[in-house]
Amino acid sequence: MGISSERDLVEFIVDYTRDMALSEEEPGTILDRYFVPDFEYCNDGLVIDRQRMIDHVRPVRKNVDKAAMAANDNAGVEVHQALVRGDQIAARWTLRTTLRKGKTFTAEIYMFGRLAPDGRIQRIDQTNRQLDDQP
């Protein structure tokens, strides 16, 4: 899947979030669909490479309430803005995830990125602002 429009970017945010949290598919296969092999994902100043992203998925999949997340058509994602201009992307979105222990994790996410020529992601610079958890 290559990103070439705002609609593609919104679909990426929703599908990638859902697939990484809920799918039984190997995380590396999911990453390869959306990212070039040597991508850089800089989240709140921490650069995450492919292996680190794969390692991050295991605890996420263990801790999310899969039934609650699957019941939401958009996987708990609300995209407020999405922009694509040439090889540049930007989005502002909210993630709401119900955890197995009943709490809700909510964060505002501001994402900026650069696309490879094939439309997959080459780099993301992202910052998050966690909102109050709700019981």
Rank of each mutant, 00 (worst) to 15 (best):
V60P: 00
V60K: 04
R61W: 11
R61Y: 11
R61H: 07
R61I: 12
R61K: 07
K62R: 13
K62V: 14
K62C: 12
N63E: 14
N63I: 10
V64M: 03
V64Q: 03
V64P: 04
V64E: 05
V64Y: 02
D65L: 02
D65Q: 01
K66Y: 04
K66S: 09
K66F: 03
K66G: 08
K66R: 10
A67G: 10
A67S: 12
A68F: 02
A68G: 01
A68T: 02
A68I: 02
M69L: 15
A70G: 11
A70M: 09
A71K: 11
A71L: 07
N72D: 15
N72R: 08
N72P: 04
N72I: 15
N72S: 12
D73H: 11
D73I: 10
N74G: 14
N74I: 10
N74T: 15
A75P: 07
A75H: 01
A75I: 07
A75K: 01
G76Y: 01
G76F: 01
V77A: 06
V77S: 01
E78D: 11
E78Y: 05
V79F: 05
H80S: 11
H80D: 13
H80N: 14
Q81C: 03
Q81I: 14
Q81S: 13
A82M: 05
A82H: 00
A82W: 00
A82I: 00
L83F: 08
L83R: 11
V84C: 05
V84I: 05
V84G: 00
V84A: 05
R85K: 12
R85M: 12
R85L: 15
R85T: 15
G86L: 04
D87K: 06
D87P: 08
D87V: 06
Q88G: 10
Q88C: 14
Q88T: 10
I89Q: 02
I89E: 00
A90G: 07
A90C: 08
A90E: 09
A90N: 06
A90Q: 14
A90D: 08
A91G: 01
R92W: 04
W93S: 15
W93V: 08
W93P: 09
T94R: 11
T94S: 05
T94M: 06
T94P: 01
